[in-house]
Simulated scan of single mutants.
Amino acid sequence: MFRLPPRAALGATFRALLAAAGAATFALAAGPAGAQGFPERPVTLVIPFPAGGSTDLVGRLVAERMSAELGQPVVVENKGGAGGNLGAAQVAKANPDGYTILMGTVATHALNPALYKKIPYDAEKSFAPISLLVVVPNVLVVNPDFPAKTVPELVELLKKNPDKYSYASSGNGTPLHLSGELFKSLAGVQMQHIPYQGAGPALNDVLANQVPIMFDNLPSSAGHIKSGKLRALGVTTAKRAPSFPDIPAIAETIPGYETYTWNALFAPAGTPPEVVAKLNAAANKSLADPKVQARLADFSATVVGSTPEELGAHVKAELAKWAPIVKASGAQVD
């Protein structure tokens, strides 16, 4: 039988409950107050790839404008390695106060969970989504000295010389690697894959003609394409990129071919909603800046700007989309 405690004990219990309730009320009041003052010091934006690639370019552009919106510097920290896993894990384990955020990509939040046997974070549970920033085309480029000048010529050359030529990518299992593997599969050709620790180092070797072919993010190759230091054979999106209308889509030669990447901001899971809202507002205002839009348009990045909930739904959909593609490619990283 359930018995009430003695009156004295009941009074002590009641006083304890009142004290606990008061402490909880104070904590709830302190939380939003702290969030209202956010940010009171610089915010670190971790970019999980080396400097020079598309993610780095987009990240620095947005970080500069967000600094003005937030009234505090947004400091970029490049943390490359393991296809973006190192930088993503750093943010996942950071204090959830909004002062450490991540520039996530299709690699960190859609491909890596399918590619790696072990991953140091959960793409959904370890993060608080902030905003989907942009969707970016990839592009197939070659050194100007390379004999093939079009996608059909490249396919013919590779079929005549299986495994003679190699292509560079930003690393095993990255979107650029899978762009190459999908190309090989659909075109029925063979190339050797040479992975690098990021798109920047890979691009440098293609410019130096150490490796003749590369699948790159369009933003990081755009300037070299315009200057003639690289020859673009095709974009990886289903349709041509608006900023380079003369570059054919690879799908015009190889039906069904399509890959792309995207950039989005994430905070550690448990970050207060008020802080996430402030970061979301700053990011989306940055994307609305005409100067930022013009710069992003230069390399055909499609500006999105989303709510945290929309980004969360996007990650879920991308995980479902890419898992079977990665499995079919046979790519896996230990």
Results as ranks from 00 to 15, higher is better:
L287Q: 05
N280G: 01
L265I: 15
S286E: 00
I250G: 06
L287K: 09
W262D: 15
V275Q: 03
A269M: 07
G256P: 10
Q293K: 14
V292H: 00
A267P: 10
A283C: 08
A288P: 03
Q293H: 03
A249E: 02
T253F: 05
K291F: 07
V276E: 01
N263W: 02
Y260D: 11
P273I: 00
I254A: 06
L279W: 05
F266K: 10
A249C: 07
P273A: 14
E274I: 01
A269S: 13
E252D: 13
G256K: 11
P248S: 08
P272R: 03
Y257A: 12
A282H: 02
A249S: 15
V276W: 00
A281E: 14
E252P: 11
A281K: 14
A249I: 04
E258K: 14
A282D: 06
P273D: 09
P273R: 03
Y257M: 11
V275D: 04
G270K: 10
K291N: 06
P272A: 04
Q293V: 03
N284P: 05
A249D: 02
A281N: 10
N280K: 02
Y260I: 01
P272F: 01
T259H: 10
P268F: 08
A283M: 07
N280Y: 01
A294W: 00
G270C: 10
L265Q: 08
K278V: 12
A283S: 07
P290E: 02
T271H: 08
P268M: 11
A264W: 02
E252G: 09
W262N: 15
K285L: 10
T253E: 08
A269I: 04
G256F: 09
A277P: 03
V292A: 01
E274K: 02
I250E: 06
A277N: 08
T253S: 15
A281H: 07
E258Q: 15
Y260N: 12
A264Y: 07
R295Y: 03
P255W: 02
D289R: 08
A282L: 04
V275C: 04
I254R: 06
